[in-house]
Computed example of a mutant assay.
Amino acid sequence: MAWFVLIVSGVLETVWAAALEASRSFSRPRPTVLFVVALVLSMGGLAYALRSLPLGTGYAVWVGIGAAGAAVYGMVALGEPVTAARIVCLTLIVAGVAGLKLLH
């Protein structure tokens, strides 16, 4: 259960990062509310998962999912450049997260 909650929390990290960008420095109410809700749920899920997972593993997986998700969102939805180097780096992040899960 902790791994499932951790993965959902990582996805919520991507949501709050995207909402933060969309809020335009908290000047738009709906993205600002989404940011706050996603942030609270993401942190709460991380806290729950860390009850049974080691801090280093849990935090690295959470950040990895959020960072990779935000980068992919930026490329797909915001028109950020899609380059071979970025894809390789994202692949390495995903491989590291998967490795932490498999080696736990």
Rank of each mutant, 00 (worst) to 15 (best):
M1Q: 11
M1I: 04
M1K: 07
V5W: 08
V5E: 09
L6I: 13
L6T: 12
L6A: 07
L6G: 11
L6W: 11
I7E: 02
S9L: 04
V11D: 02
L12S: 01
L12G: 04
E13W: 07
E13G: 14
T14M: 07
V15S: 10
V15P: 10
W16Q: 13
W16C: 12
A17Q: 10
A18K: 07
A18S: 11
A18Q: 06
A19W: 04
A19C: 11
L20G: 08
E21K: 15
E21R: 15
A22E: 12
S23K: 06
S23P: 07
R24S: 12
R24M: 08
S25I: 00
S25R: 15
F26I: 00
F26A: 00
S27R: 01
R28M: 05
P29F: 07
P29Q: 01
R30N: 06
P31R: 02
L34W: 13
V37S: 01
A38F: 03
A38P: 09
V40I: 15
V40F: 08
L41G: 09
M43N: 03
M43V: 15
M43R: 08
G44L: 11
G45L: 04
G45R: 02
L46Y: 05
L46P: 07
A47R: 12
A49V: 08
R51T: 14
R51K: 13
R51P: 04
R51C: 08
R51H: 12
L53R: 09
P54Q: 12
P54C: 00
L55H: 02
T57P: 02
T57Q: 14
T57L: 14
G58K: 04
Y59C: 00
Y59L: 11
Y59S: 12
A60P: 00
W62K: 07
W62R: 05
V63C: 15
I65E: 01
I65D: 04
A67F: 13
A68K: 03
A68C: 12
G69W: 03
A71L: 00
A71G: 14
V72G: 10
Y73T: 08
G74N: 13
G74T: 12
G74Q: 08
V76F: 05
V76H: 06
A77L: 14
L78S: 11
E80R: 14
P81D: 02
P81E: 02
P81C: 07
V82C: 13
T83Y: 04
A84P: 09
A84V: 15
A85S: 13
A85T: 14
R86V: 00
R86I: 07
I87K: 06
I87C: 13
I87W: 10
C89H: 11
C89G: 14
L90K: 01
L90Q: 00
T91C: 03
T91A: 15
V94E: 03
A95G: 05
G96A: 12
V97E: 03
V97L: 01
A98D: 07
A98K: 05
L100N: 08
L100V: 09
L100C: 10
L100A: 05
L102T: 04
L103H: 04
L103E: 09
H104W: 14
H104M: 15
